[in-house]
Write a protein that binds this DNA or RNA. Structure first.
Ligand SMILES: [Mn+2]
Ligand SMILES: [Mn+2]
Ligand SMILES: [Zn+2]
Ligand SMILES: [Zn+2]
Lengths: 151, 151
DNA sequence: TTAAAAATTGCAACATAGTTGCAATTTACT
DNA sequence: AGTAAATTGCAACTATGTTGCAATTTTTAA
């Protein structure tokens, strides 16, 4: 068991359980967000679907992770690396959803621009998603085109 | 049968059928977007669920309507009032999803700001959703507070 | 106007994401 | 160690969306 992750759970006053540590370790190992179905593929044999849902929901509430819906409306999750808490989420960055590999990227460098709402429309939080082709898939496609041109 | 709507279908080279006219007339009558489930409640007795899905998908492809996912990941649809076509959608406006009444509003006055993507991330389209409390629900809440203060 | 071709519909069955209640187990607390 | 509190796993369920196919409707063209 990973001590660093156990401490993270402690910091948020959550009991240290196997499912939670497992989920955290997977989330930490990824550079892009991950969906419940993907997680289920990875650890579905060891951990119940429902536990997965409840774990992710709790993490989201506590501000350990944040949730983004992909182009199919499926929930994807990524660790909050900024300092988020139960009260305030600091995840106002743009997300990039690749239409080829379906990966969801947190573009932490891109802050969501602030907009003035119409009168009496009171905003709580915002969501900026860009759909397109990600770096990996773009480079893969470029390589393919190059190889075709050579022949 | 509404002639204006029949003409709209003609313009997009779609055959004039009852389900399509019905869906269009509902969409036209609304000031905010509507979800498939809501539509099903309204006309589920007359039109099959599957037909509804296929109608909405086709309209979306043709550029008659556009689709926005709400906070539950459910698809909502609204008429495109800008001139959209199969090739180019001109719906780059902000959407507002009320967390109280769940209504999805097209804020056509608010254009989505343009952002520069990281190298090799190729954007195709963008999605800017603001979650919060809409005009109607805000005013309702204000009235309630006023009435409490009077007593 | 009528007949054939093409498109659309309705039905049944299925797929996937997510939820709820409850008893059994695990974790935290003293 | 013993108890209270939290979490887990199971079963059953709900909701949104999809697919194949035969029957019906709409379009096209004679
Ligand atoms: Mn993110
Ligand atoms: Mn809109
Ligand atoms: Zn990709
Ligand atoms: Zn509202």
């Amino acid at each position: 068991m990973d001590n660093e992750l156990a401490e993270l759970l402690g910091k948020y006053k959550l009991s240290k359980t196997e499912p939670r540590l497992k989920v955290l370790s997977i989330l930490r190992s990824r550079e892009s967000a991950i969906s419940q179905p993907e997680l289920e593929n990875l650890i579905g044999g060891e951990i119940d679907r429902v536990t997965l849902y409840r774990t992710l929901t709790k993490f989201d509430e506590k501000g350990i992770i944040h949730k983004v819906l992909d182009l199919n409306g499926t929930a994807n999750y990524a660790l909050c690396n900024s300092s988020c808490s139960e009260d305030t989420h600091n995840d106002e960055h743009v997300h990039f959803n690749c239409t080829t590999c379906l990966n969801m990227y947190c573009l932490e460098a891109l802050q969501i621009p602030h907009l003035v709402m119409p009168v009496n429309f009171v905003p709580h939080n915002v969501n900026f998603i860009v759909y397109g082709v990600c770096e990996k898939c773009t480079l893969k496609a470029n390589k393919y085109i190059e190889s075709k041109n050579k022949t």
